[in-house]
Design a protein around this nucleic acid. Structure first.
Length: 650
RNA sequence: GCCGCAGUAGCUCAGGGGUAGAGCAACUGAUUCGUAAUCAGUAGGUCCGGGGUUCAAAUCCCUGUUGCGGCACCA
């Protein structure tokens, strides 16, 4: 080879080399400082070791700590350092896998003794020692069989299993750091010292080998790692902030709900929490009415025969609660979903094509026997309520119905404070019912509906339900977490199973299509999410207590009671606080309770028939004439759907 | 369901073989005050349930249960 190699740098400049060069050499040719700071090299978009030799014309970027891809390298290195530390401290522990993940890294170990929190501190100290040693991370290529033999003789049976799964003729890479080595694809920084000091071990947890619950359970150690101490600290602060807005904590502090042993997985809604719940339910009900839905209510307990016909008994029976009735002669199921019930209402009369579409909604109370380990606050429960509906329509009506639904849904999310929404279309899974032709039509129907609604969406092949494709809506909350809430599922299957039909224009029977759809999903889960999204500081229209009228001295008690009465009469959820306490204390307490508006009255206000209003989070107050204040609050407290809401139970 | 950790006053938590502690809240009294904690006093406990070890168990062991963190699950 006599021709030279042209390396294009990010700034567009080109460097010529007359022989193959490594990433490290390229970095050195640019500058000494860069060579020292380099962690890896990105070649044509792929991050590689600095020792990688470049033999052709490519674009390269030198990955330093500030490069967007640096964190992944640092975290992956940290995982290796963690594994070395554990094996130094606890000989006989087997290593398995340890990738970089969002915000950090983990490593899964096989060891009989559990790791304790004390162990974590020791391991972290050992990691710092290894980082200080700054041993070079050296890549070696082995044959697969050599690697298998090596790991087997070293008692690393999990590693051996991993390597054995690789084709025999494929070379595999291992990385050596000092006396320690690990099977790994890489890339890695040139030495362990590059991990730096901004890392911390976070927790130990169980994790199944290869993510399969039939396999043995390993011990996973999680850590976080960042470019520098400042980033680490910011991350830890963010975690603390997230903890402060945890719905379980706020639910208790704000007296919204509780859960207890005797009713695991079910929510005890307290007056304020139930006020919030009903406000949201009323809002949704109004939106549904405006969108042409009819509301129904279907039974909790239904004979097993219906669930057998619908397929739930066989397919989802493990997750259903079942009860005996009539001295064991009957077996009933507690409904886990509302669709079988809705089909029965559809079937209760002869339907004409003129009746379609029928949009049948229900605040459907469902029970699912979730695994105990899945329960979480009010987000994952065994008894919950869906804002569910089924649209019975013809195949031709699907695109328009779907598009209308998307519009409704996005409007609801916006009203409830969510602006960033990702839409995904889950397509046919490998195991499915129905012909390919039917699937083509179903998927195309949803696709065109998404397009006509002007929505950008990502397609997820293989993720659909067995009976049909579905559209998923993922919301991003105030601290950047995403939640899958609403769905629209296309189901040509259930109408078939339960034999429902309508009479077409041609006088013959036809199967309708069922669109299953939920905007919030579970009310419980959505409210939990909203509590965290708003950190308990709800907008006025949602706040369980919208205003507290409170006094400076007892001399204003009479006037305060009058103001309170007027607010209540105008539909404001207001409380009256005439305790003989300092105004500082009362403002503090109601602020901590996250009441949006504190209406303060003293002798002056009573004389002038004014009020001093203080908004949550604000430092100042606004003195207004009573009438003006009442009008202002009434205006601001209006539901975006235009419903009046309802009065507080207080 | 699986692995680990935890359950002490209404709440947040300390105590870890020798008769149960704090702060806040509650209650009583005083204080009538201008926008995020007024002062004083009083009362409050099956230390998660059951079993065991021990002269003695909140504390150690076993078991159950619930919660927490993950994993698996989320139709």
């Amino acid at each position: 080879m006599t021709s030279s190699i042209a390396i294009t740098l990010p700034d567009g400049s080109v460097r010529e080399f007359d022989r193959p060069v490594t990433g490290a050499e390229i970095a050195a040719s640019i500058g000494q400082r860069l060579a020292k700071d380099a962690l890896a090299v990105k070649i044509d978009g792929t991050v590689k070791d600095l020792t990688t030799t470049v033999t052709s014309n490519v674009r390269i970027e030198i990955v330093t700590r500030n490069h967007p891809d640096a964190l992944e390298v640092i975290r992956h290195d940290a995982a290796h350092v963690l594994a070395e530390a554990v094996q130094e401290l606890y000989p006989g522990t087997q290593v398995t896998i340890g990738p970089a993940i969002a915000n950090g890294f983990y490593y899964d170990f096989a060891r009989d003794e559990p790791f304790t929190p004390d162990d974590l501190a020791k391991i972290e100290a050992k990691m710092r020692e290894i980082v200080q040693r700054d041993a070079p991370l050296v890549r070696e290529e082995w044959t697969r069989d050599d690697a298998v033999a090596y790991f087997k003789t070293h008692g690393e049976h999990f590693k051996a299993e991993l390597v054995e799964a690789i084709p025999a003729d494929q070379a595999i890479s291992v990385y050596r750091q000092g006396d320690w080595l690990d099977l790994c694809r890489g890339p890695h920084a040139p030495s362990t010292g590059k991990v730096g000091t901004a890392f911390k071990l976070m927790k130990v947890a169980g994790a199944y080998w290869r993510g399969d619950s039939r396999n043995p359970m390993l011990q996973r150690i999680y850590g976080t790692a960042w470019r520098d101490e400042k980033e680490l600290k910011a991350y830890l602060t963010m975690l603390e902030e997230a903890e402060k807005r945890d719905h379980r904590r706020l639910g208790k502090e704000m007296d919204l709900f509780h859960v207890q042993e005797e009713a695991v997985g079910s929510v005890f809604w307290h007056p304020k929490g139930w006020t919030l719940y009903r406000t949201i339910e009323t809002y949704i009900r109004t939106r549904l009415e405006q969108a042409g839905y009819v509301e129904v209510k279907t039974p909790q307990l239904i004979d097993s025969s219906l669930f057998k016909a619908s397929g739930h008994w066989d397919m989802y029976g493990d997750n259903m609660f079942k009860v005996e009735a009539d001295e064991g002669k009957k077996q009933l199921g507690v409904k886990p979903m509302n669709c079988p019930g809705h089909t029965q209402i559809f079937k209760s009369a002869l339907r004409s094509y003129r009746d379609l579409p029928i949009r049948m909604a229900e605040f459907g109370s469902c029970h699912r026997n979730e695994p105990s380990g899945a329960l979480h606050g009010i987000m994952r429960v065994r008894a919950f309520t869906q804002d569910d509906a089924h649209i019975f329509c013809t195949e031709d009506q699907v695109p328009e119905e779907a598009a209308e639904y998307f519009k409704l849904q996005l409007g609801v999310y916006k009203d409830l404070g969510f602006d960033k929404i990702d839409v995904k279309l889950a397509l046919r899974p490998d195991v499915r019912t129905g012909s390919d032709d039917l699937w083509d039509r179903a998927e195309d129907g949803l696709r065109s509906a998404l397009r006509s609604a002007g929505l950008e969406f990502e397609e997820l092949p293989g993720e659909g339900a067995f009976y049909g494709p579905k559209v998923e809506f993922h919301l991003t909350d105030a601290i950047g977490r995403t939640w899958q809430c609403g769905t629209l599922q296309y189901d040509p299957n259930l109408p078939e199973r339960l034999d429902i039909h309508y009479i077409g224009e041609d006088g013959a029977k036809h199967r309708p299509i069922m669109l299953h759809r939920a905007i919030l999903g579970s009310l419980e889960r959505f409210i939990g999410m909203m509590i965290e999204h708003y950190a308990g500081k709800f907008p006025l229209w949602l706040a369980p207590v919208q205003a507290v009228v409170t006094t400076i001295t007892n001399e204003a008690d009479g006037y305060a009671a009058e103001v309170h009465k007027i607010l209540k009469a105008r539909g404001i959820r207001a409380e009256l606080d005439v305790r003989n306490e300092k105004i500082n204390l009362k403002v503090r307490e109601h602020s901590l309770q996250k009441v949006p508006v504190i209406v303060v009255v003293g002798r002056r206000e009573a004389e002038e028939r004014t009020v001093a209003m203080r908004y949550l989070g604000g430092k100042d107050q606004e003195v207004l004439a009573l009438d003006a204040a009442v009008n202002k609050l009434t205006e601001e407290a209006r539901s975006p759907a235009g419903d009046r809401g309802f009065d507080s139970p207080f």
